[in-house]
Deep mutational scan, measured.
Amino acid sequence: QEELVKAFKALLKEEKFSSQGEIVAALQEQGFDNINQSKVSRMLTKFGAVRTRNAKMEMVYCLPAELGV
């Protein structure tokens, strides 16, 4: 569980995922086979993730800066 949270936060820091499906796929690539869209959705809510525009003006998920991840 701890490893999943770390990987999840690291992915969001990249600010390149525009959908929950993309986050699920990226986590599965890292070996988290039991991850699915509903789990990702709950984690996004739990950590207060928001959708914002990145440098390329794409809408992407990211974590609020005050979490200091």
Rank of each mutant, 00 (worst) to 15 (best):
Q1G: 11
Q1A: 11
Q1R: 11
E2S: 12
E3P: 10
E3F: 11
E3A: 14
E3N: 12
L4A: 03
K6S: 11
K6C: 15
A7C: 15
A7P: 00
K9V: 15
K9H: 11
K9C: 12
A10M: 11
L11I: 08
L12S: 00
L12D: 00
L12P: 00
L12T: 01
K13P: 01
K13W: 10
E14G: 06
K16E: 05
F17M: 11
S18G: 13
S18H: 11
S19W: 07
E22T: 06
E22R: 06
I23E: 00
V24N: 02
A25L: 12
A25F: 10
L27W: 01
L27F: 01
Q28A: 09
Q30M: 14
G31V: 01
G31E: 02
F32Y: 08
F32W: 09
F32T: 00
F32H: 04
D33C: 09
D33R: 14
D33E: 13
D33W: 13
N34S: 12
N34H: 12
I35W: 02
I35R: 00
I35Y: 02
I35S: 02
N36K: 07
Q37N: 10
Q37M: 12
S38M: 13
S38R: 15
S38C: 05
S38I: 12
K39F: 12
V40P: 00
V40A: 02
R42T: 11
M43F: 06
M43A: 01
L44F: 03
T45G: 08
F47L: 13
G48W: 03
A49T: 03
A49N: 03
V50M: 09
R51S: 04
R51H: 07
T52K: 15
T52V: 15
T52G: 10
T52S: 11
T52W: 06
N54H: 03
N54Y: 03
A55V: 08
K56A: 12
M57P: 03
E58K: 09
M59Q: 06
V60L: 03
V60M: 03
C62L: 07
L63N: 02
L63K: 02
A65F: 12
E66R: 06
L67K: 13
L67N: 13
G68A: 08
G68F: 04
